[in-house]
Design a protein around this nucleic acid. Structure first.
Length: 304
DNA sequence: TGACAGGGGGTGT
DNA sequence: ACACCCCCTGTC
C-alpha cells in the first residue's frame, strides 16, 4: 500500500466563494453532499465521481489540492462541481431578501454560500439513502458502499459504486452497508436503470417538471428525494424539497402552522420564486446554526 | 462506562 | 395511518 502523494495547493478564484469556515462547512457538509470530511488539520476532503480534492481556507482564501492519481480529473471537474460559472452572490441578491426580513437574516449569516453541482447518479444514490436518516448516518452508509464496492481511485480512497456496479450487488450486500430498508429501493432502482440504458442521462437533460415526474417513477423516490436530486445534482434551483425540517421552519418563521406539504411547496415556489431551492438551503443553514448555539449553551462549559 | 429507549431531512401500501 | 430497518444520540 503506497501513501497518498498530494499536489501543491492551487488557489481558487477569490470572488463569490465562501471566505468563512462556517459558510464553507455549511456548503460542503450541510446536507447537500455526503462525502466531505472535516480533518484534524482543518482541511476538508471530498470525493465525487473519479475525483478527490482537499479544500483549505487560509487568510479567507480557498485553495485546493488533489492526489497525483486524480489530479487531472479533479483539475478538470472541480470548477463544475463547485459551479464556479455561477455567481452565487448575485443569485442570493436575486432572492426576495428586501421584502422578507427572515430570509435577509439568513442571507446575511451565510455570505457566499453556494449549491454544489454534484454528479447526477451519485446524488440519486445519496438521497435514496437519506430517508429518515441524519447526515452523519448517510455519510456512514455511503462510506461503506464506497469502501466495499467502489473502485480505489487513489491509495486508500474509493469512489462510490456506479449504478451498473450497484445492479450487480445483491440486496443482502447492500443491507450489509447499513442501508436498512433502503437496500431494497436501491436494489430495485439499480435493476430498473440497468434495464433502461440512458434513462438517467435523459432524465437529467429534461425540463424540471418532466425530470421530476420521471425520477418519481423510481422505487424509493418520491417528491422530496426527486427535488433534492434535481437541486443538488442537476442545478435546478427551482426545485423546492419539502421535508419535516422545512415544514417546521415555515411554520415557525412564516406562520404556516398546520399547512400540508403540498401547500408549503406551493407557498415556497410563489414566495421565493425561481431560486426557491437556494432559499430553502439558506433557511436550513440558519436553523442549523441556531440549533448549534442552543446546544453549545446547554453545555456546562458554556456556563462558566 | 454501559445499557436502553427514542427517534430519525421519506416512501409505499 | 403505519410499517419499513437499524444506527446514532441523549439519558439514566
Amino acid at each position: 500500500m503506497s501513501a497518498l502523494s498530494w499536489s501543491g495547493w492551487h488557489p481558487l478564484p477569490s470572488t463569490a466563494l465562501p471566505r468563512r469556515a462556517s459558510v464553507l462547512a455549511e456548503t460542503l457538509d450541510g446536507g447537500q453532499a455526503f462525502r466531505w470530511h472535516h480533518q484534524s488539520d482543518g482541511t476538508w476532503r471530498g470525493i465525487w465521481g473519479e475525483c478527490v480534492a482537499e479544500l483549505r481556507l487560509k487568510d479567507h482564501r480557498l485553495s485546493w489540492r488533489a492526489p497525483e492519481e486524480t489530479l487531472a480529473a479533479t483539475r478538470r471537474e472541480l470548477p463544475l462541481y463547485l459551479a464556479l460559472e455561477q455567481d452565487y452572490v448575485e443569485l442570493a441578491d436575486a432572492l426576495p431578501g428586501r421584502s422578507d426580513a427572515h430570509l435577509a437574516n439568513c442571507l446575511r449569516a451565510f455570505p457566499a454560500f453556494r449549491l454544489l453541482r454534484q454528479p447526477f447518479g451519485e446524488t440519486l444514490l445519496g438521497f435514496l439513502c437519506s430517508a429518515t436518516k441524519q447526515i452523519v448516518q448517510i455519510k456512514q452508509m455511503l462510506a461503506l458502499l464506497a469502501e466495499r464496492h467502489g473502485a480505489e481511485i487513489a491509495p486508500g480512497i474509493h469512489r462510490l459504486p456506479t449504478w451498473p456496479e450497484l445492479a450487480a450487488l445483491s440486496e443482502a450486500e447492500l443491507r450489509a452497508c447499513l442501508l436498512g430498508f433502503r437496500a431494497r429501493y436501491i436494489h430495485q432502482t439499480a435493476a430498473f436503470l440497468a434495464a433502461h440504458p440512458g434513462w438517467l442521462e435523459e432524465t437529467e437533460r429534461l425540463p424540471y417538471p418532466e425530470a421530476k415526474a420521471r425520477l418519481c417513477l423510481l422505487p424509493g423516490v418520491g417528491e422530496k428525494i426527486a427535488d433534492c436530486v434535481l437541486l443538488f445534482g442537476a442545478g435546478r434551483l427551482e426545485a423546492f424539497p419539502v421535508d419535516v425540517w422545512i415544514i417546521k421552519t415555515m411554520a415557525a418563521r412564516y406562520g404556516l402552522e398546520d399547512w400540508r406539504p403540498d401547500q408549503i411547496a406551493h407557498f415556497g415556489r410563489v414566495h421565493f420564486g425561481p431560486l426557491a431551492g437556494l432559499a430553502q438551503q439558506y433557511l436550513f443553514a440558519y436553523e442549523r446554526s441556531v440549533a448549534k448555539s442552543v446546544k453549545a449553551l446547554a453545555k456546562p462549559s458554556a456556563l462558566i
